[in-house]
């Protein structure tokens, strides 16, 4: 309200036809946004086209057998990515399971008035700082710190609960669980930051109304505030999953890069992104084509996960936010 008189004073009222300059600026802006939007779409399409083009010989050669093959042997010309697909999806879901739980809890803790405002900001920055650590550093930290820390626990689990498929093998060092754990830490800032924004965006009136009805803090958070923010929180999870699917260097160092399909958390495995990064520099023409095909598969998995994620978001939003 305060700003309005100054505005009208200069221009002599807002009820006038736009000047030529304004019209041009308006048109330029509209055109600009349109061009930039299309550029992003075209860029994605171009990337897919380019990868698809390089992958085409491999697609013709190996067909759908590529997706269910389990061998990767450039010397014999045998290529299959089922173990990599399994490893990519398995590690990402494990990471999301951990990062999602911890991220949401952190978000609740940092937004629902448990801490003084100054501490909240400090904690928030610390969590976001995790996003600035380079992937290679996470990988080295995983090898030198995480794996030795996990070893006693893993050995105990295997000895006591070896009949459970998840603990079916001993931990050799690099493997699925250390990789997923480090991946979870890498995804955590994304999930935590977006969830915090979502929880902050819940209208203050809603919270006051809940407390006004005599709800405890516990009830208010779990029954009203988190469900109200659920669509954005799910969005955060989907973004985190996307990041986990494509993560390369830390996984290449920690996952063990062995083409195996197993439920065991301590067994080495492989992921699409890691095998792309490791094999591409020395790949010959045939293998490079197969790797491009694998890249296309990774794109497809990311797309499918995002579509499924979006539909889950849409459905649960309707249920949790109480819209018809």
């Amino acid at each position: 309200m305060a700003g309005e008189p100054a505005k009208t004073g200069n221009h002599g009222g807002i009820a006038r036809a736009p000047a030529a300059g304004e019209r041009i600026a308006d048109r330029l802006f509209r055109g600009g946004t349109r061009v930039l939007t299309w550029l992003v779409v075209l860029l994605s399409a171009y990337i897919v086209w380019e990868i698809g083009g390089s992958a085409l010989p491999a697609i013709r050669e190996y067909g759908l057998g590529f997706l269910i093959g389990t061998e990767w042997d450039p010397n014999a010309g045998k290529f299959g990515v089922l173990p990599q697909i399994w490893g990519t999806v398995y590690s990402s879901f494990l990471a999301l399971l951990m990062a999602g739980t911890v991220g949401l809890v952190i978000a609740i803790f940092l937004t629902q008035g448990f801490l003084p405002a100054k501490l909240e900001t400090a904690f928030r920055s610390i969590v976001e700082l995790l996003a600035a650590v380079p992937s290679v550093v996470y990988g080295l930290w995983g090898i030198h710190v995480v794996i030795p820390l996990l070893r006693p626990a893993a050995d105990w689990l295997h000895a006591e609960l070896g009949w459970v498929p998840f603990f079916g093998t001993t931990l050799s060092g690099p493997g699925m669980f250390p990789a997923a754990l480090v991946l979870a830490i890498m995804v955590l800032p994304t999930v935590a930051a977006i969830s915090q924004d979502a929880l902050r965006a819940v209208p203050h009136k809603m919270r006051e109304a809940v407390y006004g009805m005599g709800a405890t803090r516990w009830q208010a958070i779990l029954k009203v505030i988190v469900p109200a923010a659920s669509s954005s929180i799910f969005g955060a999870m989907v973004l985190g999953l996307g990041r986990a699917l494509g993560e390369t260097m830390a996984l290449a160092m920690l996952v063990g890069n062995s083409n195996q399909i197993t439920l065991s958390l301590f067994s080495p495995a492989n992921t699409l992104a890691a095998s792309l990064a490791l094999n591409f520099p020395e790949a010959g023409v045939v293998e490079a084509g197969a790797l491009m095909y694998a890249a296309l598969v990774l794109l497809a998995i990311t797309l499918i996960v995002n579509v499924i994620g979006a539909s889950i978001v849409a459905r649960s939003t309707r249920r949790l936010e109480g819209q018809a």
Partner: peptide, 9 residues
């Protein structure tokens, strides 16, 4: 392929 053969970059 077995769980005791692991690969590092």
């Amino acid at each position: 392929n077995n769980d005791k053969i692991i690969a590092a970059p």
